[in-house]
Design a protein around this nucleic acid. Structure first.
Length: 860
RNA sequence: GCCCGCGUGGCGGAACAGGUAGACGCAACGGACUUAAAAUCCGUAGGCGCGAAAGCGCUGUGCCGGUUCGAGUCCGGCCGCGGGCACCA
């Protein structure tokens, strides 16, 4: 290129993106309505907490959703693609305490900033449907739901142990307790018994478990995690009569078949019986206190010894008259699971065995493993916990296999009225009370005369007071001078409002339904939710595999039970995307540095003062490690489309992605290449809609075929969430277009088809550039309103096939033959090839393997 | 400890369903254009060896073994990394 020639033009991302964003907004391109005549598709990305800034991890998530939304739209679906804000939560209150900002203002300011950032990304949201969960017009509906849950016995209140921070005067979540101390105050956390509200998720334990089987488009591992979380175990409750006491001790077991091997019973340190006995036994009280002091962290449990305290009580064996078992209080028995008490069978449970060895209790095996001799089989240091085997030493169970023995033992227990078959779950009811201001007020009133009285529906919403102070510890709602004082709706007497607010998972448990009719006077309208739900494709982080996704599944069932909607599974398809990671940097003093503070010269890192910098491992971007990339700077420099392309192309979407500056520059180069190709094609293009001639010279014919193969490939890639591969396929097509020698007069029509196809296929990923190029190619309609390209099956098929030619399984040659060439003809060609002759080295082919369109393997 | 996932060039990653390993990109190197740089374009490239070159041979998907005409892919056994769960009776 000489200086007189024009320099290559560069794509002006900023101008272009702003232009098309305002065109879409002005035309209401992405506004949708319920339309029963059309097939619907609901794409949803997990909505963000308005923390203040959008980061690239968010953008990766939303870009994937946007690709799906735009792709499905092009396929003719009526696509719902909404966005909103999960706006209640602790950070707003912490900001209030730190800076005096009101949580509402802090939150709404953040929303304004983040909305602006989202809009710059060109995401195809129906912004009319935006919701913020902290708005009374949102949370009033969940107050109504709660009242319905109360009436349906799906919500209740009970005393529960909580982590209490005595300095902050509030409950802490488990995650907020670090080494037994409050994460903010540093005060030793106390266990406190508090009356808390619960939702009866356990009522749906079986349904939630069974429902997992219907979620075919969920990742296997998420289903497994939920299954384990629910933790269903079939077993039996056994009642042991106690010597000298009228009451009986109930235990839970999954192995009633091993009852004849029972050596002891053990109860949890906070079992009511233990507490009762401790009142008359100082030694026992000390033991229980020690147990309570022991943490439940992994490290503690690993090393913790099985310890027990013999209460002196004797439990009578249900099957063996005259035989009694000692009753211990044991540190490894959990009050929260099963009956809070067990019987110990040392031979067939490792914990019981450890315990029995320590306290010199009998170890009697009752299940004989296959291939063992009954007279010689002994238990050493390892219990036999497997199922295969035959019962022995067990009277009426002798000779039975374990499953049959379980049934027989349970039947016998039931006949003796000493137990029943039952199912235990690991799942606990969901505690939703938080002693916090910035959450949805729980709509009940405590009346000294009438007890708990629901707030009448007409009085909803119970709104948060705005004049609150955050300058002292404790729940600002409880400390507010007037807010909580009300008349009892029932008796009219003086009463107090509930000052707890809901766990913020409450809001995210139904927002997907609100999006269907976001401004309706009721929580949702049947016509809309019946049409739109379930969400066809939900996209978000794996960190919500259990909590949010399980709560939402439960909530949907609870709403269905209360007549709100008809579906039970809110999310038909789920995709969990990987995190965005970045190198970490530390200076000589070990302080974290932001990437922009680090200079790189010939691979050597230094800080602003030239001191050495050490790069650490790749980690999820986080503020604390400063390995974050400012989204604004990226979009300013390269535009949203380039960032989107990079986030999609660099790694498979389910895997973590490493953000690198070099990577985004590669995407920027591609954007410019395509822009130049479409705005300044190598030959003049005929007008839009020009027919491609049937007879084409070979290079053009090849390009045409490449176009149609690319349509097939990219469509398949998008269906399967393989965005990185889709991008590769489009780039391959672009390479093929650029490699074309444009000396044929028919090139224009072929070139137009090729470029238009590349633009269309790329449209969901780089929508602004797509619109710009679509217009530059002479179209007057929006690309967003165009339909997805359909491949000509005839053209997409290769007309020639390349056979890999092997001799004894080793590749020696390839041969190119017309598609459909018969086996004999191919083999004939193959055998004549010099490379084959050379490899055969005079030996005669003994056998020839032929795989159509793939391979010929000659075996001498 | 249990469950799940993953190990492919310097790097991110491709490879349908057992059939040409390394597509596409990043970084790199060589070249063109330029006073120079940026930008752009052309070219090279798993490793080792032979050859002036076209090319040819060997080797290669964490390790060891197996099945097969043929294994990154299937089977068995190891090693390593990541994630989840964990005194759940």
């Amino acid at each position: 290129m000489t200086t007189t020639e024009p320099r290559p033009q560069r794509y002006n991302a900023k101008e272009t993106e702003e232009k098309w964003q305002s065109v879409w907004a002005g035309r209401g391109t992405f506004a949708v309505e319920t339309d029963r005549a059309r097939p619907k598709y609901y794409v949803l990305e997990m909505f963000p907490y308005p923390s203040g800034k959008l980061h690239v991890g968010h953008v990766r998530n939303y870009t994937m959703g946007d690709v799906v939304a735009r792709y499905k739209r092009a396929q003719g679906y009526n696509v719902l693609h909404p966005m909103g804000w999960d706006a209640f939560g602790l950070p707003a209150e912490n900001a209030a305490m730190a800076s005096g900002d009101h949580p509402a203002r802090w939150t709404y300011d953040n929303i304004a900033v983040m909305r602006g950032q989202l809009k710059r990304m060109g995401l195809s949201y129906d912004w009319r449907r935006e919701i913020a969960t902290c708005h009374p017009e949102y949370y009033r509906h969940e107050q109504k739901m709660f009242l319905d849950f109360l009436a349906a016995d799906l919500a209740y209140r009970r005393e529960s142990w909580v982590n209490w921070d005595p300095v902050e005067n509030t409950v802490l979540a488990n995650e907020q307790v670090i080494d037994g101390r409050g994460w903010r105050s540093g005060a030793l956390v106390e266990k406190r018994l508090l009356a808390q509200w619960f939702l009866r998720i356990t009522k749906f334990a079986d349904e939630l478990l069974d429902g997992l089987g219907t979620l075919e488009r969920w990742p296997e591992r998420v289903r497994v995690m939920q299954e384990k979380w629910i933790g269903r175990s079939e077993g039996a409750r056994v009642q042991f009569a106690l010597d000298g006491r009228p009451d009986r001790l109930e235990v839970f077991t999954t192995r009633p078949d091993t009852l004849f091997g029972a050596a002891f019973c053990a109860i949890a340190p906070n079992h009511p019986l233990a507490e009762e006995l401790a009142r008359g036994n100082a030694e026992l009280a000390v033991f229980i206190a020690e147990c309570n002091r022991m943490g439940t962290s992994e490290a503690v449990l690993e090393t913790a010894e099985k310890r027990g305290f013999d209460t002196g009580l004797k439990a009578r064996h249900p099957f063996r008259a005259g035989v009694t078992l000692p009753v211990y209080v044991a540190n490894f028995v959990l009050m929260e699971y099963g009956a809070g008490a067990i019987f110990g069978c040392p031979a067939h449970d490792q914990r019981d065995l450890d315990f029995a060895r320590k306290y010199r209790l009998a170890v009697v095996p009752v299940v004989l493993p296959p291939g063992e001799d009954a007279t010689r089989f002994e238990i050493g240091t390892e219990a036999y916990t497997d199922e295969p085997g035959t019962l022995f030493n067990s009277e009426f169970l002798n000779g039975l296999a374990v499953p049959a023995a379980k049934r027989a033992a349970t039947q016998k227990l039931e006949a003796l009225q000493a137990g029943t078959g039952t199912i235990a779950y690991r799942l606990r009811d969901w505690g939703v009370s938080r002693q916090r201001y910035w959450g949805c007020p729980i709509p009940v009133i405590h009346c000294p005369a009438c007890g708990i009285v629901p707030v009448p529906e007409a009085d909803l919403p119970v709104s948060l007071p705005e004049d609150v102070r955050f300058d002292r510890p404790g729940n600002p709602l409880a400390l507010h001078p007037t807010w909580k004082h009300v008349r009892c709706p029932r008796c009219g007497g003086a009463a107090e409002r509930e000052t707890d607010t809901f766990d913020t998972f409450f809001e995210s448990s139904w927002y997907f339904a609100r999006f269907c009719s976001p401004r309706a006077p009721t929580a949702m309208t049947r016509g809309d939710v019946d049409y739109w739900l379930p969400v066809d494709q939900y996209i978000g982080g794996i960190e919500h595999a259990v909590l949010h996704l399980l709560y939402a599944r439960f909530f949907t069932r609870a709403l269905a039970a209360c007549g709100y909607l008809a579906v039970v599974e809110p999310f038909a398809g789920l995709f969990t995307q990987g995190m965005v990671c970045h190198e970490t940097y530390r200076d000589a003093d070990g302080n974290w540095l932001f990437p922009e503070e680090v200079h790189r010269t010939d691979g050597v890192l230094s800080d602003a003062k030239g001191r050495p910098v050490v790069s650490g491992r790749l980690e999820k971007m986080s503020k604390s490690k400063k390995n974050v990339v400012g989204l604004e700077a990226i979009v300013d420099a390269f535009g949203a489309d380039t960032a989107r392309l990079y986030l999609l192309s660099d790694s498979p979407p389910e895997r973590d992605l490493e953000w690198t500056d070099a990577g985004i520059e590669g995407s920027w180069r591609y954007a410019n290449r395509l822009w130049r190709l479409a705005t300044d094609p190598p030959v003049d293009l005929p007008p839009p809609g020009a027919r491609v001639p049937h007879e084409l010279p070979p290079p053009l014919e090849d390009l045409r075929r490449a176009v149609h193969r690319t349509i097939v490939a990219v469509t398949d890639d998008l269906e399967k969430f393989r965005f990185n591969r889709g991008v590769a396929h489009i780039r391959e097509l672009t390479n093929a277009i650029e490699a074309l020698e444009p000396d044929e007069h028919s090139a224009g029509a072929v070139l137009r088809e090729a470029i238009e196809t590349a633009v269309k296929l790329l449209g969901p990923m780089m929508p602004h550039l797509g619109e710009e190029l679509w217009q530059a190619l002479g179209h007057t309609r929006l690309l967003a309103d165009e339909s997805w390209p359909v491949a000509d099956a005839e053209l997409a098929r290769e007309e020639r096939v390349t056979y890999a030619v092997q001799v004894s399984g080793k590749l020696r040659d390839t041969v190119d033959v017309p598609r459909g060439t018969g086996q004999d003809a191919v083999i004939e060609v193959v055998l004549k090839r010099p490379a084959v002759q050379r490899a055969l080295d005079g030996r005669a082919p003994r056998k020839t393997i032929f795989v159509l369109n793939r391979i010929v393997n000659v075996v001498p």
